[in-house]
Nucleic acid binder design. Structure first.
Length: 262
DNA sequence: CTTCTCACA
DNA sequence: TGTGAGAA
């Protein structure tokens, strides 16, 4: 009595595609019990158990290739290695997803806080920030594709970074990325006069003037370089525009000089 | 119904 | 690492 089943019956039984079963065969991890005279594959209990084992390992993300190697020499030690490796991959993926999650939250938060601003100007407390330079430009020269391409190694994910431009009054402007460890420069902690705008790149010069005009009109004493932060990820919802945040450190009021009624 | 091959993600 | 289409 022939108790073996066809490939489609096996597929239905194990909730997988017929294709996948043939794929396992091609990769050498699951042979049919025999092939019928009509070339149809036939499977028995042994194959059912074997397939169950393979599917379990696949569910644990063990590569088919590894499953095959493990069938030849199945030391229990090697089996644990497979699962250890899977575990590492999973943890790396977990980390990737957590970072992705953080980034989405960051975009949402920054976008929300920007849209809630009543006006373009406000005062913002900044913690001290470590910056590492990655490119320098003449102040008259616009950032172009060619110079970016030269630096391509340094900047994997420009589109998601806060790019800091520092205008220190000299004729060059330096681009920085934020880093966790101390780098080329540190922005001091303190209160920053801040101007946020969503504009075409050409308008930036104009807004820089607005920034200093406003500071002068309000008698706000600025200290140190002008910081321009480009948050390209905030331009997600306004194509063609760039989001800039202009910041200047407000000089701390000298101790014994009254005059600030707050 | 099965088989295989090819192109595609 | 599979899937989908098409021919036989």
């Amino acid at each position: 009595m022939k108790s073996e089943i066809t490939i489609s019956e096996l597929a239905k039984l194990m909730n997988v595609s017929v294709h996948q079963i043939r794929y396992f065969e091609e990769k050498g991890v699951l042979q049919p019990a025999y092939t019928d005279t009509n070339q149809y594959r036939k499977y028995g209990m042994d194959q059912i158990y074997e397939l169950a084992r393979i599917l379990l390992l696949r569910k644990l993300e063990v590569p088919v290739q590894s499953i095959k190697e493990c069938m030849i020499s199945h030391s229990a030690d090697q089996q644990r290695q497979l699962l250890h490796h899977s575990l590492q991959e999973i943890e790396a993926e977990l980390l990737r997803l957590q970072e992705l999650r953080q980034f989405i939250l960051k975009v949402l938060h920054e976008q929300q806080s920007y849209s809630l601003q009543p006006g373009p100007f406000h005062i913002k407390k900044r913690n001290s920030t470590f910056l590492t330079s990655f490119i320098q430009l003449d102040s008259h020269m616009r950032l172009n594709a060619a110079v970016l391409a030269e630096q391509a190694n340094h900047i994997l994910n420009l589109f998601e970074a806060d790019i800091h431009y520092l205008y220190d009054g000299s004729d060059t402007v330096t681009l920085y990325l934020e880093t966790q460890v101390p780098g080329d420069t540190t922005l001091p902690e303190g209160e920053y006069l801040t101007l946020q705008c969503n504009i075409q790149e050409e308008e930036l010069e104009h807004w820089i003037e607005q920034f200093f005009d406003y500071a002068a009109a309000q008698s706000i004493p600025l200290l140190g370089p002008l910081v321009v932060i480009e948050r390209s990820y905030l331009s997600l919802f306004s194509p063609g525009m760039l989001h800039y945040e202009l910041q200047g450190l407000i000089a701390p009021a000298a101790k014994s000089e009254g005059g600030d009624p707050s």
